[in-house]
């Protein structure tokens, strides 16, 4: 009976692909989200998602593949943000805010000026739809996500040291600057891989919420990462089936499940949550 309920939506190829994409994105976003939560990169993730839109517009006008445009724009912006961060004396969030809203606005204006015939609704590429994931999109998510997970796996201990204590890590001979830029590049790649499937707002939620929930549940970095990935995948899975049976949009439901899990954990371990929030100011 339960098996039938679980199998019913999977009769349709597009729903199977959507589910696979959602689970993959839940995992990848939560893994990179561990750094996003601990280093306060949430705003950067948002910025990258918006900048990817401008990349898509330019790619559309110049005849490139959309993914390439978004990827180039996001990675370039990620590196730019990394360079801003290393400069002392500039409020980073202000600088990023100026940069990303400017670039996003440029994308909007460019779209209306540059496209005089039929406007393919480029916004829909940014406010993506998990249900229109094509086999090609799934391959892109798989490829880019695999690359991100592989690099994080290989450089796990270096990225951990640099995230926790960048100055000491660098003083001890680790390439701190390069590792931080790598982290931002991986974040850019994750955002681009995810944004077409789940959209700008939801990608930020998937970056932050499962990892934040995992943070409330453990004291160890690698457990936070694994737990976050599990929670991300669980949110995707539960959210997807809920959206099917409740007949509501999938992306929003997935994020709602992730948020509900966070609320549940925060409520059930009130002492810990309060302690953590206090520590983090």
């Amino acid at each position: 009976m339960l098996v039938d309920l679980l199998l019913e939506p999977l009769r349709y190829g597009f729903l199977l692909r959507g589910l696979a994409a959602a689970v993959l994105i839940g995992i990848i976003c939560a893994v990179i989200g561990t750094y996003v939560v601990l280093k306060g990169f949430a705003f950067i993730g948002d910025a990258l998602a918006h900048i990817a839109f401008t990349g898509i517009v330019v790619a559309f006008l110049a005849g490139f593949v959309f993914y390439l445009g978004a990827l180039v724009a996001a990675v370039a912006a990620g590196l730019g943000i990394g360079l801003i961060q290393r400069r002392v004396g500039l409020r980073t969030d202000t600088a990023i805010g100026i940069l990303f809203s400017g670039i996003f606005a440029f994308g909007i204006v460019l779209m209306s000026v540059g496209i005089k015939t039929y406007t393919v609704d480029l916004f829909s590429y940014v406010f993506g739809d998990i249900l229109s994931v094509r086999p090609r999109d799934l391959l892109v998510i798989l490829g880019l996500g695999g690359l991100v997970l592989l690099l994080i796996g290989l450089l796990y201990k270096e990225l951990l040291f640099v995230s926790f204590d960048p100055v000491a890590a660098e003083a001890n001979g680790l390439p701190g600057g390069a590792l931080q830029l790598l982290l931002l590049t991986l974040l850019s790649i994750t955002v681009v891989a995810s944004v077409q499937a789940v959209g700008v707002v939801l990608v930020v939620a998937m970056l932050v919420t499962p990892s934040a929930t995992a943070y409330l549940l453990t004291d160890r970095f690698h457990r936070m990462m694994l737990l976050g990935a599990g929670l991300g995948a669980l949110s995707a899975l539960v959210g997807f089936y809920l959206s099917y049976y409740l007949n509501v949009p999938s992306g929003g439901t997935i994020v709602l499940v992730a948020s509900a899990l966070f609320a549940l954990v925060a409520l059930l371990s009130p002492r810990r949550a309060q302690l953590r929030l206090l520590v983090r100011g």
């Binding site: 601990l38 951990l160 995230s163 926790f164 204590d165 100055v167 000491a168 943070y215 453990t218 004291d219 160890r220 970095f221 457990r223 936070m224 953590r276 520590v279 983090r280």
Partner: peptide, 9 residues
């Protein structure tokens, strides 16, 4: 100089 809320032992 470091974040002591970091989840490490």
């Amino acid at each position: 100089a470091v974040d002591w809320a970091f989840p490490v032992t």
